[in-house]
Design a protein around this nucleic acid. Sequence first.
DNA 1: CCCTGCCGGTTTCGTGAAAGGACCAACGTG
DNA 2: CACGTTGGTCCTTTCACGAAACCGGCAGGG
Lengths: 147, 147
Amino acid sequence: MLRHTYEGQDCNLARTLEVVGERWTLLIVRSALLGIKRFDGFLGNLDIARNVLTNRLTRLVEHGIMERVPYQDRPVRYEYQLTPAGRDLTRGIIALMQWGDRHLDHEQGPPRRADHIGCEGTVHVELHCGQCGRRVHDEEVDVRSIR
Amino acid sequence: MLRHTYEGQDCNLARTLEVVGERWTLLIVRSALLGIKRFDGFLGNLDIARNVLTNRLTRLVEHGIMERVPYQDRPVRYEYQLTPAGRDLTRGIIALMQWGDRHLDHEQGPPRRADHIGCEGTVHVELHCGQCGRRVHDEEVDVRSIR
DNA sequence: CCCTGCCGGTTTCGTGAAAGGACCAACGTG
DNA sequence: CACGTTGGTCCTTTCACGAAACCGGCAGGG
């Protein structure tokens, strides 16, 4: 994405996209979820231009999604770790990834899975009601503006 | 987003972002979830350039996320409706929106809510394990490549 | 002591997409 | 018959992206 400002949009989807909606950003976070931490790791994993990677990592750090921590001195080298806020994007990322699993790429099955550590089942994203506690389907959701 | 190709990425997040990751696209789908259907409706709701809106709607139709249906003849007028695949983006959109609710905009509370129709509770996005059925937290998820 | 390689960047530059605004066409209405 | 409504197209300017070259600190080898 581009021109990362959606001003005049009183909407937290717009605000979120200003932070993670630029091209490559969510893919960088996904790579981080896979365990990649270093500049060259992201480079090799993503086939992204170096300057763009620098730019995105800087922005992710600015927004508190990643943290730049030295892992050696002499010479000082940094790696990038997800913060709790960054890991909190897991749901959104898996939701989009599994949407792709369902609607695109029917050739050879999904290339990536989200497993429940310990139990080894596959993790899915679901909507649940905070009131009645039941699972909710797409058609039972009313998205609405307040204000 | 831009140059909408992440080739060489055997990843369904990348494929999904090629479809809905361009600037404005997810906001258009969100507006559609709010009930907006017409060209001028999106224009008024989003403050987007007309040519960009035309481009995005065309792409959404191409990808089977929206459908362009005439709602009157003479003159023929079209409106854009979400397909089931489009409505299936609900989880991803709410996940990102509520990430924004949690981590951005601490001023006046979230401007949009997702309600459970009938029950009037608020809907949340959760991770659940397909095996053991339990709710899963971010740290219990292992995202991994197969292949 | 110089050469090479590794790592994590910065700089420069050309290109193509987005923003913004003017224009357009078909029809209905007063 | 002018004017508004709807759903666009066209043109120009701006700016983000991609590619590639360059950089700097350090270790190890000959």
